[in-house]
Computed example of a mutant assay.
Amino acid sequence: MESHISAAEAAQTFPDVIERVRSHGDVFVVEREGEPICRIGPVVPARRTVRDLVRLLQTAPRPDDAYLDAVEEVAKNQPTLPETPWER
């Protein structure tokens, strides 16, 4: 639900405004002299897609050879894990 409130009312009732945003998802348009100044509302979580991930990976700097060599060295020198009694 979107409500229009004056800047003075928003200042006087700010804890209540924040609680209504948090608990009910209410949105407040704060006005000064009848002119909308800002909107107070819930933060919408960012949505990411696989396409966003692909773009990020395509634009990220490429690792240099020294980095890839270090990763390979670490992978080769990993200790083997003991077998668990639950494996057959």
Rank of each mutant, 00 (worst) to 15 (best):
M1S: 12
M1C: 06
M1A: 06
E2Q: 10
H4E: 05
H4Q: 10
I5V: 11
I5L: 06
S6D: 07
A8R: 14
A8P: 04
E9C: 04
A10R: 07
A10E: 04
A10P: 08
A11Y: 00
A11R: 03
A11N: 01
A11E: 00
F14D: 11
F14V: 10
F14T: 13
P15G: 02
P15V: 02
D16Y: 05
V17T: 02
I18G: 09
I18D: 11
I18W: 04
E19Y: 03
E19D: 06
R20Y: 00
R20T: 02
R20S: 09
S23Y: 10
S23D: 15
S23Q: 15
H24T: 10
H24W: 09
G25A: 02
G25V: 03
G25W: 00
V27E: 03
F28A: 01
V29E: 05
V30L: 03
E31I: 08
E33I: 12
E33D: 14
E35G: 07
P36D: 02
I37W: 08
C38E: 06
I40A: 01
V43E: 15
V43P: 02
V43S: 14
V44K: 13
V44H: 08
V44Y: 09
P45D: 12
P45N: 01
P45E: 07
A46K: 04
A46T: 04
R47P: 11
R47V: 13
R48S: 13
T49V: 06
T49N: 09
V50D: 15
L53V: 15
L53I: 13
R55C: 09
R55N: 12
R55F: 12
L56G: 10
L56W: 11
L56P: 00
L57F: 15
Q58I: 14
Q58S: 11
T59G: 03
A60S: 02
A60D: 04
P61Q: 06
P61R: 02
R62E: 13
D64V: 11
D64A: 05
D65M: 08
D65P: 03
A66E: 13
L68C: 10
D69P: 06
A70S: 03
A70W: 10
V71Y: 05
V74I: 07
V74H: 07
A75N: 03
N77S: 10
Q78N: 03
T80P: 00
T80W: 01
L81Q: 02
P85F: 07
P85H: 05
W86H: 12
W86M: 10
E87Y: 05
R88Q: 14
R88E: 14
